[in-house]
């Protein structure tokens, strides 16, 4: 049993080290205690994201055999923990960079004053670690934001978040296409970008669905791929999300099916370094189909 406890402590220490490196902070305070029943161990405390808890469980499962490990860990960025944090913020400048690292080098996404309030998880050396309404967690400069010391959690209570199985009925799919037009041949491709000037593929989908229907999609294409319902390649329709992988690597890409007179796809294209609208046949010369999802349908 002592070996197992030692091993668990070492797993926690190693994970804490890697999360600190990634996020620049140490919200991974896990304590361990032996329960009365033999072989039972309780891990309790706080961590930052659900992914961290998942990684902890995975490491415990693969490295500790025969121990009955129980968890009482609060994920600070989970919906149920929302009301524990009373500090909220909003972007003050037109484009505010949110980075995945404390140093501000790895662009994760961008926000603007039009975006919803975000939750401030902690503040350190004039930088804030925030959680956005699409669940992105990252750092931004304090001098780019307004901070509200009051509880604004009600602004998050009625978010129209799209989930697996959801197909929302909308008045007109045309408004989705209309929202994407200002970006075509205008916005350049920027990984992590989310503005009218520079944007990436998943942010483009997030932005147009939000503007057209107020729907909130996750920030990453792999997470967007879990929304709505699956659509086979031969049944693609207007406004479906089309996922594909570059033929050169395993990076997931997403575009919007625009089937008007021709079968087209609108996407922030790394190859052309722009948001473009191109024939789906040309698109599939460069990408391998990886799936399609339908999250909206038109009211009949």
């Amino acid at each position: 049993m002592n070996d197992k406890i030692q091993k668990l402590n070492s797993i926690i220490k190693e994970l804490k080290k890697s999360f600190t490196k990634k996020y620049g902070c140490v919200i991974f305070d896990i304590s361990l205690k032996k329960l009365k029943q033999e072989n039972q161990i309780m891990l309790s405390g706080n961590c930052l994201t659900a992914k961290q808890l998942e990684l902890l469980k995975k490491a415990v499962k693969s490295e500790i055999e025969g121990a009955d490990v129980h968890y009482d860990i609060r994920v600070l960025t989970s919906q149920s923990s929302l009301h524990h944090l009373k500090c909220w913020g909003r972007a003050e400048k037109f484009i505010v960079n949110v980075t995945s690292d404390f140093e501000g080098e790895k662009l994760s996404t961008q926000i603007s004053p039009d975006d919803n309030y975000f939750k401030i998880i902690l503040q350190k050396n004039f930088r804030s670690l925030v959680q956005l309404d699409d669940n992105t967690v990252g750092w931004l400069d304090d001098n780019n934001i307004y901070v509200f010391k009051k509880d604004l959690s009600e602004t998050w209570d009625n978010l129209n978040i799209v989930r697996k199985g959801d197909v929302k009925t909308v008045n007109s799919i045309a408004s989705l296409i209309d929202e994407s037009f200002p970006y075509i041949n205008q916005a350049r491709y920027l990984h992590g970008g989310k503005s009218a000037v520079a944007i990436d593929c998943s942010a483009l989908m997030q932005t147009i669905f939000r503007r057209a229907f107020g729907l909130i999609l996750p920030r990453h294409s792999l997470d967007q791929m879990k929304l709505g319902i699956r659509v086979p390649k031969n049944d693609l329709q207007n406004a479906d999300l089309v996922f594909a992988r570059s033929n050169r690597n395993k990076i997931m890409h997403v575009g919007l099916a625009f089937f008007d007179e021709k079968r087209m796809i609108i996407h922030a294209c790394l190859r052309e370094k722009m948001v473009i609208c191109e024939s789906i046949d040309v698109f599939f010369k460069y990408y391998t189909f990886a799936g399609a999802r339908r999250i909206v349908k038109e009211e009949k």
Partner: peptide
């Protein structure tokens, strides 16, 4: 109707 390369 699934395809090779599709992610599930």
């Amino acid at each position: 109707d699934m395809e090779i390369g599709e992610i599930i």
